[in-house]
């Protein structure tokens, strides 16, 4: 039996009809056309489907859409204005932390979530935060460089304000 749910995605409210077994990832990609969250392993092991659900990064492939009813969802499409890059995205590009790009949306969202909560993370905390996001191309050294750079950049920006 289908159900009506309400989701706020990147600030915009949507009324959606979903099946009991449809995941949040299905709804984002297939109903809303937001394909930034990727379907990787589809079993919660790779982190490519990461979105921010009510303030915390989660695997959208393991979150049933019906369970997200009434929630606030932030996806990679919403982190910066169209045509602009979020400082975390910019740092990933500048530091070559992107190769095929499949894991990148998840990594950027996890990084943004980490830096929102902890602007000056130690390497240990960065590794821990990213430990649910697998990359099969670049390795993780450049990703760590990018996260450190993004943290510096965001702190500097905060300082200017």
């Amino acid at each position: 039996m289908k159900r009506l749910i309400q989701l706020t995605v990147n600030g915009q409210a949507h009324d959606l009809v979903v099946t009991p077994v449809g995941t949040l990832l299905d709804v984002l990609r297939d109903d809303l056309g937001l394909t930034g969250a990727k379907r990787g392993c589809d079993l919660g092991a790779c982190g490519a489907c990461t979105v921010i659900l009510d303030g915390r990064p989660v695997n959208s492939c393991l979150t049933l859409a019906v369970e997200a009813d009434g929630s606030d969802v932030a996806t990679i499409e919403g982190v910066a204005a169209p045509g602009r890059l979020h400082p975390v995205q910019e740092a990933f590009a500048v530091h070559g932390a992107v190769q095929c790009g499949f894991c990148t949306p998840g990594m950027v969202l996890v990084t943004k979530s980490l830096l929102d909560e902890c602007p000056e993370p130690e390497d240990r905390q960065i590794r821990e935060a990213l430990s649910g996001n697998l990359c099969r191309c670049t390795g993780y050294v450049k990703v760590l460089d990018a996260v450190r750079a993004a943290a510096r950049r965001l702190r500097a920006r905060e300082g200017v304000r």
């Binding site: 659900l53 915390r56 990064p57 989660v58 430990s131 649910g132 996001n133």
Partner: peptide
């Protein structure tokens, strides 16, 4: 247990 993403759910 699991990853940070899994522990959030």
């Amino acid at each position: 247990t699991g990853s940070p993403l899994l522990r959030n759910r």
